[in-house]
Nucleic acid binder design. Sequence first.
RNA 1: AGGCGCGUAGCUCAGUGGGAGAGCACUACCUCGACACGGUAGGGGUCGGCGGUUCAAUCCCGCCCGUGCCUACCA
Length: 891
Amino acid sequence: MTSLAKTYEPKGVEKEISKLWESAGAFRADAFSEKPAFTISMPPPNATGQLHVGHAVMLVLEDILIRWHRMNGYEALWLPGTDHAAIATENVVLQQIKEQEGITDPRSVLGRDEILKRIADYVKNSQGTIRSQVKAMGSSCDWSRERYTMDHQLNRCVNEAFLRMYKDNLIYRGPRIVNWDPHLKTNVSDDEVERKSTKSPFYTFQYGPFQIGTVRPETKFGDKYVVMHPDDKRYSKHKHGDTFECEWINGMVTATIIKDNVVDPKFGTGVMTITPWHDHVDFGIAERNGLDKEPVIDFEGKLLPIANEFAGMGIEEARPKIVEKLQKKGLLVDTDSKYTHSKSFNSRGGGAIEPQIREQWFIDVNKPAVTWKDRKISLKEILIDVVRSGNIKLVPERFNSTYFHWVENLQDWCISRQIWWGHRIPVYYNGNDTRVSLKKPEPFKGWEQDPDTLDTWFSSALWTWSTLIDPELAKDYSLSLEDVLERSPDFQKFHPTDIMETGYDILFFWVARMILMTTYMLHAVPFKTVYLHGLIRTREGKKMSKSDPKSVIDPLDSIKKFGADALRIALVSGTGPGQDLRLYPEKMESSRRFTNKIWNAGRYILMTIPDGTSITAPITVNSELAKWLLHGLNDLIKDTQSRLESHRLSDVADNLKSFFWGDFCDWYLEMDKSPNRTNENDQVLAFAFTTLIKMLHLYVPFVTEALWKEFKQPKMLAFSEWPKTLPYQFKASYERIEVIKESISQIRTLREKANIGLEIKISATLYSKANASIFKEHQNLIIRLARLKELNIKEKESDPLNKLFGTYFHETYASIDATFVDWKKEIETLQKKFKSESSFVEKSKKKLKHPGFISKAPEKIVKELKKKIIDTEKKLNAIRQQIIDFKELSN
RNA sequence: AGGCGCGUAGCUCAGUGGGAGAGCACUACCUCGACACGGUAGGGGUCGGCGGUUCAAUCCCGCCCGUGCCUACCA
């Protein structure tokens, strides 16, 4: 008895089930539970608006893992939240103000407080949007613990970290070359710089006795050092420190010769002049050799007075004019207009990077100042140690080498930003007095806080644990951070987290920095396993990009069209950890049909079984068909468990889908539709179906929860117990039914070939010494599913005199009465088959004669091959006879 | 320039040292007690190329070609 709709309607069901989960206070983890903890910190999406498909895949993978552990007896906590994404968020809001209010420089017009208020309002709004999008995906996270990287307790952790590092001399302030973005007027970290292949003219100029190459003539005003490789024989007569006079852009300059290994003798002329203030490499040379550094370009990207008549010009404007001037002076030697190099841009929505030297705050990654495993080592060394020693495992493992390579080349981390939105640097100045503290100095009069804010990744690096401290305790500054941690039940129960699941594209930005900060602050790892997923791509394998809206798949839009369950399946199928995934509508459509199939199977079962049918496994099983099903189901349970353990989420989805659709629906449900069904049949149906939807629940939580509801169980499916393997084994029955299935398929094929539609009932005969008793036992089943009038079963080989249309399989000859057969085609098919089978036998016999094979191949393989040869020879005999018969029949 | 992936049916992808797989698409048939968003059956592949290891290679190794990504101190 059921009133379920004929077609699965995701929209209504998802709404209803969401409410059900929410009203039950579902998914709220209990810090005082006896169960072992399983924790995932959700990577916080930027609080700038919309969830994209990359978030969707993250949500699905994490939800699968969380639901699985929850059902498997763990106290599962999945903690959600959002990130303040400093640069991106501030940029978005400033742009809005510019466009909507026509204010060209909002920061100077509105002031710091007003801007911060505007951003905060904007963030509130977009957090709400994100929250509802996360829910729409079916994510079973704990909203009572939602966090934001700007929460007060997180701010305390940020300040604690800064203070401690400052005291350990790991944080220092100094003039260093940084990636300056003149457009957004802030610097960004090395990782936030995006390099794009760009075509720029490459000029060669005469500089005294040398020829030097550059793409940036506008930086060359102050150049007074020529650098070459110490081993470059062409320039061996010039000595390090030699000076000479030469004509340059604005008159004569005195130049000094510098030898440095960084110069590549094979590049250009092997000689270059340097501009330490505006280039990372040049800065390095200047530092090593103690050379002067001089600014040429200001923070707006305009030339300084050193450029004389070019002062005040923008770079793009000045460049051709400078080249022209040099050309007029006869100093331009060559212009290569086809030259391509990779140019730096601000990946956080800004423009071209113009390196500058600035006073910035840095974290020293090389100083051995951290106690880790009873040794004092550097942050860099910790980063390497935790992965190398296996404290943290990367999945897939191949990212280890990428990770090590990145860490080994890591430079000091520049953590200050010249923007307003973010955690303000906890450093205070009063004249010459500098103070670093958790709270503002009191009284504050005369003090001024450092205007800069911290890199967003500084705060998100603390995410796994700063989110678990008790917000109330964090307000009490009489308690040390250690006290707070010790008294926070969530931290005690749920940290370290179990799996960090995120895209491989932020391995460095975020994952590595979490490891760095957490090992430093807590002497513990933030997580045990890092599962990295790939990028979602278009059908053509292209990146989905905002600049090409047609290429972008919006998860909410897909949920509307196909349902959340369908989107979920599509996002995990056909991919593995670290592997990119192509997503397109057909994929989601086929997943949608699967959800509909589940729905209809459930609908049928609910229509068939009486109310109150037990959903537990029957203690004893009589029906051989049920034995076949339960045997397969048992294998599936085992297989699912082991594959989930090895993170093969896509395989699990495939296997569940194929068992459900093929074995369960196409075969078992059809076989079970017998006129004399028993109570046992009902129970098996209920048990097998509910077991299957328990496992499927990880992938398609909505449709399965909705169907489960109809079984009127005390607990929701999300909280029910994960299937255990069954206490019985039915291997023999399983194989017997496989023979029956094969016989049905074979007879169906014969009808098809004889052009006899399923509407016409015919007679068939099965000849077999080996299987006659099995056939007799299931005679009615074969008659029903092969749509027969009658079935004759003969316990003997087929009679060569009795020529019939038929086929050979499993030591059985199946035949039907048929006249309208395309004999010629059938004979051709048989001949083709004969050829390939006999070549197999030939090949195998040759193999058997090879002495190496007998002596070296495992016994099992040899035995199997021998058996295969015997079987295939039997088949060949049958085919040979068939060809003769068919030839006769065709006349 | 270096590193890492990928190359298997028309498309998207599994796969294993022992006779090539799934889904979609395609063809034919079917209103058979849930589902036509379904069922039944079928066609389709020198597993990128060339060498090597092995009794045996789509799988392991080397080189090459194509393709994607990441890193770099590309003046």
